[in-house]
């Protein structure tokens, strides 16, 4: 119930924050929404010596439609992307996932970028980002790197930031054609992490074939899993239930879930299979201009 002691820093500008992060190195940790970090500290699973609170960097609290992409600043809360017009137009997968992350109150505080940085394999956002081909902007006192999400998510609670860096923005590319997407999550109740979930994304060429596709899975591997093989199967093809069933079978085979109190691995695979099919079908309807 009570977190361990730490030193607290609350920079008023990004520069100040980056300097502090640089200075603290491994002894410092960014505090964003705190909706993962504080619970871990309360259960004494984490004991950072220093916290750099970025909640005063209100310039980073944006959700913007930039030229080629949707830009989500480090301080945008989960709630900011629920029912957001930019999100709905640019990333239907993200729009579909947003209401199902955590619960309404946690969403008011937790940040999208913090969740992505956290790299919890049961977290929802990284599957979405993997499916839509997002990238992460990492900033430090020495400049910026744009990291493709596939390289950013390293493993179980591990990202590829280096000392002195923080995530300042997440970028989701605009689809080139007519796009649709879905995030189907099996959760036991509101506020639960996924037992299994599937992010799907389809971008259709003008001839109706699939120009680009995304399939990524939550909670069924040691990290959020992009199923490249399934995506490759879809790209260039004319969508059909059979095609989706084949892709779903590939996704189910690609994951490596653990048997636990939420069900045996076999069950989770079956759910991945069913949800991939359903998700692709939903994405297709939406891409073809129907209601999702």
């Amino acid at each position: 119930m009570y977190p361990p002691a730490f030193e607290y820093w609350s920079p008023k500008s990004l520069d100040e924050a980056l300097t502090k992060i640089q200075e603290l190195g491994h002894d410092g940790r960014v505090l964003a929404g705190g909706q993962s970090l504080i619970p871990m500290m309360k259960l004494r699973l984490a004991a950072p010596a220093n916290l750099v609170d970025i909640n005063n960097l209100t310039d980073l609290a944006y959700v913007r439609a930039d030229n080629g992409h949707l830009a989500i600043g480090a301080l945008a809360r989960h709630a900011d992307v629920v029912d957001n017009d930019h999100v709905k137009t640019i990333s239907p997968t993200m729009a579909s996932a947003a209401p199902w992350v955590a619960d309404p109150l946690v969403r008011n505080r937790g940040t999208v970028a913090g969740s992505i940085a956290h790299c919890d394999p049961e977290g929802d956002w990284n599957s979405v980002m993997l499916a839509v081909g997002a990238s992460v902007v990492a900033t430090s006192t020495s400049g910026q790197r744009v990291i493709p999400i596939g390289e950013f998510v390293v493993d179980f609670f591990t990202n590829s930031l280096v000392e002195g860096e923080m995530v300042t923005e997440v970028r989701i590319p605009r689809p080139t054609g007519s796009a649709g997407g879905a995030y189907l999550k099996l959760e036991r109740k509101i506020g639960d992490y996924a037992t299994a979930a599937v992010a799907t994304f389809l971008d259709l060429a003008s001839d109706g074939t699939i120009a680009n596709a995304g399939v990524a899975l939550t909670a069924v591997a040691s990290k959020n899993l992009k199923v490249v093989e399934a995506e490759q199967m879809l790209i260039g093809q004319t969508p059909s239930p059979e095609l989706f069933a084949d892709a779903a079978a590939v996704a189910a085979a690609a994951c490596d879930p653990e048997s636990d109190v939420r069900g045996p691995a076999e069950y989770k695979r079956a759910v991945i299979n069913a949800y991939t099919k359903r998700g692709l079908a939903k994405a297709l309807v939406q891409a073809q201009g129907g209601a999702s």
Partner: peptide, 10 residues
């Protein structure tokens, strides 16, 4: 928000 998951400092 849930006040158990925010530092008073913030």
């Amino acid at each position: 928000i849930k006040s158990c998951t925010m530092f008073a400092a913030s």
